[in-house]
Design a protein around this nucleic acid. Structure first.
Lengths: 217, 217, 217, 217
DNA sequence: AATGAATGAGTGTTCATTCAT
DNA sequence: AATGAATGAACACTCATTCAT
């Protein structure tokens, strides 16, 4: 409940709505972008198919030539959001080497950056999952678990190696995850921080949180 | 995006829905409780007035004998949620004395406990504010700012006094606030932690985060 | 369509709402007056039972302790309106003697005055009859026919006696009736005429209309 | 209150519902016609959107593909009614030449004929104006005033020229206007008069009313 | 690929009325 | 005589979706 500024679901002209290369071409892509903006601002049930069509500049019936229904739009957005998250986390994990501290830092940095780069997508992926049927939500939940396991693995290995001083790995994992998730709610061009500054700071926070002896230079 | 289990908006039989003494008597109170559960699970736009009435066991028209409209239900819930938060934070701050470390610990503990005690209320207060008209949302936003200022004041004084080692007070405040806010999303009777255990752990996290030299006894 | 001022259904503080002695005592009477005002301004379907109760200052349920239903309120008002019209017309007819010219003048004067004295009642009686079931509307229609017959009788006798020069008695009757009926729509304290001035003028108009050789002194 | 036959708002199979050329094509036009019939018979508040849709043979939701709301239907009808009246009155006035007697005769004839030709439209335009918001009602009221001014101008010039013998021009204008307005309430195919017969008779009445020395040949 | 017209189900809300108190 | 709570039906209107064109 402690937040920087208002704007319950923020929409201050975000740089990129969707990850590079995943936006479908033409009308199909513009529909997806409009759905993302409106779902982020008003929620899935608060944005109508006509609202989306109006934002795109097409008739609402035309939408059905591109997507089979409203829920598919949400499912697609959530899929894209979670896949981008997994892609970045895996890449970060892979490039971090074997050191738990480096792994943790890389994971936090990746999580923060994906939220600064695609905040709308993260918002929708996190807040609107409940509007999906269990079957459609399942893949997203698996992705989440994947991400969680990466983080916990690093925490456990670091703790075992004596690099981290953590009383309860699960709670620490939750706490670190919480730090990054909320970034989507407040970061934006109106903030006096670059994405890198936020990432640096949050990596520092995470390392301090696990009692890492080398919290930066 | 890193979360313990599924249940996008959690509903696992929470102990108390509304703070003590604030639930109106009779049907009025049952309506408010039903609205809280349904708004938390499906969102404001995803829960219909008929859903709420059905959960209470009354005709949907009867609802209007107690509340002037759907939006008033949400406004009332958000008001209750923010007022309980402020009440607890102020009391914690007042009882903490002058020491910034004690103040920070008290604020984090209070924030965590209000989220463990009334997770549904916190969820609705945080996620559904966008469904309120700006005028109705204004009081809640003021309360948020109040809470934020308390936290920042403690951080600034602690940093100035050399008790904390914080590079950027604003970012630290955001991070600590994020920790507590997410508690409403995952805490519940299905978790192997008591409310006190979570509070203790998160106070420890916050103190580590600000570089307090005395993390735990 | 040619009218003096706006106010589609006029409500400029009319002197007396209901004829002397017919207003029931206490709450019962206040309900009837409120219903009259609201039916006149918004129509039967446009004024709700709650609107009426609010105007009276009572709970809408209380209304049912005095009247068995909304339609009864309208039926009562329409009955009062038509009875007052008949009473006045009969009295005028009786006092006019045997002379057709005097009869016509008396009838027109009476019709005009009943509309200047109880314009709201006349408005409701004329415009809201369609909201009554045929059985309930029947008495009012009989009264109307009564009034029509009086007028036609005078016209026929006057024409037969050579006092009037009328090509079509039916059309003349309709025209004269139309003159008086509309008075309820425009007369009021905002007009620069007394009720007597209007009555005098309209009697003159009626006499001219039937070709009476002695229009005025 | 003096009227020919029952049928509080008459619906005896009127020849033409809407003026030539103004009925929109297709469903749009059928909706407008159905709304006209039902508003005339039951009043604006007494006819539901479902009633109208049922009369047209469409789903009530379809109506909103053609009109943005119920009030727009009424506004459109009232606009059409007043525009037809103005069109006819202006044309009559223009063709009547400079003679006040001819002008008065032309205006009365035009007013009567527009009411015999489109009685439902006149009924709705006159009786249901109160259901329109002031902004929407304003254009209709301007048109009314236009019509009133034409009539008063003729009366004043005729009186000044000595062609008419009128004690009070305003009251005479009201009376003549009242004559024509009521035509919509009683004229219909069930009456033993053609539209021309009624117009002739009412022109005669009007001329007599103003004391014109040449009441017909 | 796109549209206007159409629809059944559903939205929040108000209706006239009932009833226990 | 009066009320607050309650209700089933209806209100105007919007929903996601379909379909002929």
């Amino acid at each position: 409940m402690t937040q920087t500024a208002w704007n319950p679901r923020r929409l201050t002209a975000v740089a990129a709505d969707l990850p590079e290369g995943v936006t479908p071409p033409g009308t199909r892509g513009r529909i997806l972008q409009a759905a993302l903006k409106l779902f982020a601002e008003y929620g899935f049930h608060g944005a109508s198919i006509r609202d989306i069509a109006r934002a795109v500049g097409i008739n609402s019936a035309t939408l059905y030539a591109h997507y089979p229904g409203k829920e598919h739009l949400l499912a697609e957005l959530i899929r894209l959001g979670h896949e981008e998250l997994r892609r970045r986390l895996r890449q970060a994990y892979a490039e971090a080497g074997a050191d738990p501290t480096a792994q943790l830092a890389a994971l936090v940095r990746a999580q923060v950056l994906v939220h600064t780069d695609y905040p709308l997508l993260a918002l929708v992926a996190n807040h609107e999952l409940h509007a999906l049927s269990p079957e459609r939500a399942a893949p997203a939940l698996e992705l989440r678990d994947d991400a969680r396991r990466l983080l916990l693995a690093a925490l456990e290995r670091g703790t075992a190696a004596g690099e981290f001083d953590v009383a309860d790995v699960t709670l620490a994992g939750i706490a670190i995850g919480s730090l990054g998730m909320r970034v989507a709610n407040w970061f934006g061009p109106d903030q006096p921080y670059t994405r890198e500054q936020v990432a640096d700071a949050f990596v520092d926070f995470a390392l301090r949180l696990v009692g890492s002896p080398l919290p930066r230079g």
